[in-house]
Design a protein around this nucleic acid. Structure first.
Length: 598
DNA sequence: ATTAGGG
DNA sequence: CCCTAAT
């Protein structure tokens, strides 16, 4: 009897209707290889992030939880079946419930480059780089790298390059391809790894995701970040049009600037940059992304004797007013700063030049005219990083009035974790206690060690200050809202276990309940996620083990998936209502086991 | 806000 | 994971 039933079950299990149309990989192909100039910014953030990454909490917080197997003591689910609840808080339990925590404030004003971040005369972006697959990463070990070499610009013009890759070198490497800066997936991988202790980049999907990982660094999900964003937006950033749901005739790119569509918007934004970039012959054909970070400029001037040599040890950034409770952990503080920085960067930054404590705004002035010369004591020269007065990426052909979007309107899902993805659930909680109000005062000049040693050699064309203008070509659109794809967080076996069990008990049509039951405290798992995961689980269970990717899910679990799938498919339409299943527990378990409908 | 499905 | 449509 039992045997018979088992067979039925199997039959049912494998006989479910439509199996996902096509291999996911097929669909993924759509994901273009857009050149995320923004990645450079991301890389910056990523680097900074690494600094504090160590403090990030482990994502294995769920491990160690045990679940009752279906059919056993289901009544205890509230305690035992909620592996995702009450995670250990290594964040010091800075729950929101302690608003009175004393707080301290601090102002972050500059970040210094490592010591080895001395300017070197390294040919960073030589002809080959500009031409094609040139990779700048050779200079990855330099923190501030200013290359100088002959470059054949796209238009056939020969120009000297004064490539201030300082920023991107200091951070993940970037690639200079055809005048465009790209971030090798490798870089992403390194970053992604921080987020998940998983094998990003292992397969196609992974790669794709890891690629997006970057952008995720700039998502704004936490209240803190949102606050920051709001603050910044309202004060120093221009708001973004709410909906650009139209096509640009020239690029054919549909820019969708509205909540939860930023990835598209970003894409469009980025392309637009490229688009414009190509039409700026007066500028470097290398890169000058609007992000302002990927510095790249070409000077016509050959290296001269009276060049200016300088080294940049650090950049003064807009002051970031941070307020955190004393009980906050160092890690959370780091994260907070990271968030602030990310927000800052995401909005686009540019470099400011300060001479004698005075900000030089005229990019046309020559260095000498500005007072920057080899003779001058460069001690009075400083650079700053500041938020770019981001311009809304208004489609040139746009006739539609643009509606500014309220930063706070970002949906929860589009808003993402600031930077650390490994953060434990309470990270958000902690953040709630952090008051981070970045504000921009007059840029205070940062006088950093004028290089006196020959190591730091930065040829600066006396006549083309623009060569140093790392500022976006034309204050172009700065994607302000980069709500992008959430960071990928593969389900752990433990999670799968919990999910399977929950579905066994609740069925496949009550994701909300599943979420509440097994993932209530796993904030990053929405019921949609759970539903999606279940979908993939069913698919995974139906394909050969060889075709499966990622962390292998125990066959035992997959079997249960199919079993539950079959079971719930059968009783589809029936009393799938909550009331009907409320007390099925053990009996239903048996039913499922035997593959017989109840 | 949820659910269901396509992408 | 994202996005939408339909509830």
């Amino acid at each position: 009897m039992v045997f018979k039933r088992k067979l039925d079950c199997v039959s049912v299990a494998f006989d479910y209707p439509n199996i996902p149309k096509a291999p996911r990989s097929c669909r993924r192909k759509v994901l273009n290889k857009r050149t995320d100039a923004m990645d450079l910014l991301a890389s910056l953030a990523g680097k900074l992030l690494e600094e504090c990454e160590s403090s990030s909490a482990s994502s294995n917080a769920f491990e160690g939880n045990t679940h009752n197997h279906f059919g056993k003591e289901i009544k205890q689910e509230d305690h035992d079946n909620k592996p995702f609840k009450s995670k250990s808080s290594d964040q010091g339990n800075n729950s929101v419930s302690r608003p009175n925590t004393s707080e301290k404030t601090c102002v972050v004003n500059s970040f210094s480059f490592p010591d080895d971040g001395v300017l070197e005369r390294t040919p960073v972006c030589e002809t080959k780089n500009v031409k094609s697959e040139g990779i700048i990463e050779e200079a990855h070990d330099v923190n501030v790298d200013i290359g100088f070499g002959e470059v054949e610009a796209t238009g056939g013009l020969v120009a000297d390059t004064c490539n201030l890759t300082a920023l991107d070198v200091q951070f993940p490497k970037s690639v200079c391809v055809d005048g465009e800066l790209k971030s090798p997936s490798r870089v992403n991988g390194s970053l992604a790894r921080q987020g998940n202790h998983t094998n990003l980049g292992r397969d196609d999907d992974e790669k794709l995701y890891s690629y997006h990982k970057f952008s995720n660094k700039f998502k704004y999900r936490s209240p803190t970040v949102r606050r920051i964003r709001k603050s910044l937006s309202s004060k120093y950033w221009k708001q973004v049009p709410k909906d650009f749901g139209h096509y640009r005739a020239d690029t054919g790119i549909k820019a969708l600037y509205r909540k939860r569509k930023s990835s598209y918007g970003y894409n469009a934004w980025q392309r637009e940059n490229i688009y414009k970039r190509r039409r700026s012959p007066d500028r470097s054909s290398v890169v000058t992304s609007d992000g302002g970070l990927s510095s790249g400029s070409i000077s016509k001037l050959p290296e001269k004797r009276d060049s200016v040599k300088l080294s940049i040890k650090s950049f003064r950034i807009p002051e970031l007013f941070i307020e955190v409770p004393e009980t906050a952990t160092v890690g959370s503080l780091k994260r907070t700063v990271m968030e602030a920085v990310s927000v800052l960067l995401s909005g686009g930054i540019r470099v400011g030049v300060v001479v004698h404590g005075k900000k030089v705004r005229d990019d046309k002035k020559t260095l000498s005219q500005t007072g920057i010369s080899c003779e001058e004591n460069l001690t009075n020269l400083g650079f700053t990083l500041e938020p770019c007065p981001s311009k809304v990426p208004l489609p040139l052909c746009s006739e539609d009035p643009v509606i500014p979007i309220e930063p706070t309107n970002l949906s929860e899902r589009s808003a993402a974790q600031p930077t650390l993805d490994t953060e434990t659930p309470q990270a958000d909680v902690v953040e709630n206690n952090l008051e981070l109000v970045p504000y921009q005062k007059e840029m205070i000049p940062v006088v950093e060690q004028p290089s006196t040693d020959s190591k730091a050699l930065v040829p600066v064309p006396p006549l083309e200050v623009d060569a140093l203008a790392i500022v976006p070509l034309n204050q172009k659109p700065k994607r302000t809202e980069l709500a992008q794809r959430r960071t990928r967080r593969p389900f752990s076996v433990t999670e799968v276990e919990a999910l399977v069990q929950a579905v066994e008990e609740l069925g496949t049509g009550r994701w909300r309940d599943v979420k509440l039951r097994a993932f209530e405290d796993a904030d990053h798992r929405t019921y949609v996620d759970l539903k999606d995961k279940w979908k993939t689980l069913v698919h995974t269970a139906s394909i050969s083990p060889q075709q499966r990717r990622g962390e292998p899910v125990p066959q035992e679990l997959l079997d249960r998936v199919l079993r539950a799938y079959g079971y719930w498919s059968q009783r589809q339409g029936k009393h799938q209502g909550r009331g009907a299943n409320k007390d099925l527990d053990v009996n239903r378990g048996r039913a499922i086991e035997s593959g017989v409908s109840v």
